[in-house]
Amino acid sequence: MRLSIFLEPQQGATYEDQLAVARATEDLGFDGLSRSDHYLHMGDHVSGLPGPTDAWITLAGLARDTSRIRLGTLMTAATFRHPGPLAIAVAQVDRMSGGRVEFGFGAGWFEQEHAAYGIPFPASARERFDRYEEQLDIITGLWSTPVGETFRYEGRHYRLAEGPALPKPQQGPRPPVVIGGTGPKRTPRLAARFADEYNVPFCSVEETAAAFGRTAEAVRSAGRAAPMVYSAAQVLCVGRDEAEVARRAERIGREVSDLRRDGLAGTPDEVVDKIGRFAAAGAERMYLQVLDMADLDHLELVASAVAPRLD
């Protein structure tokens, strides 16, 4: 089981806050660090101060300030950026990191943040997914076009003239593409076509297993030979005893009972057991959502008391 740390910086974090977590993540032996791609905080228990940080600018900095961990997004919103410039940015960060980028990519969903920063937001989910599918086609197409050849695309929403399809990422043929969500039809089909990893966020073990099954069936139906990595994301709240669990839950504005039901919460024994159930459902990787970035002892506890006990 691979463990990655997952941050939500829109809730309130500077670059320095994120760098401190990234360095701890690297020093403690975790596999990677991913961050959300949002421009507005969520929930009434946080202010969001000092304000949002851009995901790919942040990852460019972390690419130079770390040396080993994988770096990525869960998930970059297709509504935020045009596919051509996004392909350039991700390829550049991949090169800056020495080939450590993982490209988590989603359709976009949080309408309020689009309104807050003047970003167009297609009203219908169908149009957002149509645009998202075209962007996946374009970004992976740009990366896979051989050097010296040009890329052209004629879609309903995007049209690219003969372009150089540069720069190329360091990883060949491309950085791993991560697609997530629990949509019953279109998401599994897109994952089977484009993704190297399929992620289920914040669902029960049973719901996660069902979503894995739908995507595995889409992979089989597509006749795909390439392997798929299956992963899950869960909020983290681990403590050495009940009092420490309660303190950590209070810091993030959550109830312990809710976290035990809907996340990875409790003592190390409890968390090891639940991760084991996700592994039995098919998860090969867990993204641990850390909402209190100042609590680096939380990461140390997982590294020392949870990670060594996982297969």
Rank of each mutant, 00 (worst) to 15 (best):
I5T: 06
R251Y: 00
E244W: 04
T215N: 09
C203F: 03
G223N: 05
R260G: 08
M1L: 06
S34W: 14
D27C: 00
D130L: 13
M293S: 02
P146F: 01
Q18N: 15
P122R: 02
R70E: 10
L299A: 02
L291N: 03
R240P: 05
A280V: 06
A307E: 14
I57E: 15
I57D: 15
P83Q: 08
F6Q: 04
C203Y: 01
L142T: 08
G141P: 03
F278L: 04
F105G: 11
P52S: 08
A116R: 13
A22Y: 12
A87E: 08
A226F: 00
D137F: 00
R95Q: 14
E102H: 09
G213L: 07
P308K: 13
A265K: 02
L190E: 03
R186A: 07
F6D: 12
E127W: 02
G104F: 07
D295R: 06
W56D: 09
A294P: 03
V178N: 04
L40H: 12
Q18C: 15
A165G: 08
D241C: 06
V306G: 10
L33Q: 04
L33G: 07
F103E: 06
P83C: 02
A87Y: 02
L264I: 12
G263F: 09
S204P: 11
A305T: 10
D297V: 00
V93H: 04
A226S: 11
V93S: 04
R214E: 09
L59V: 01
D65N: 11
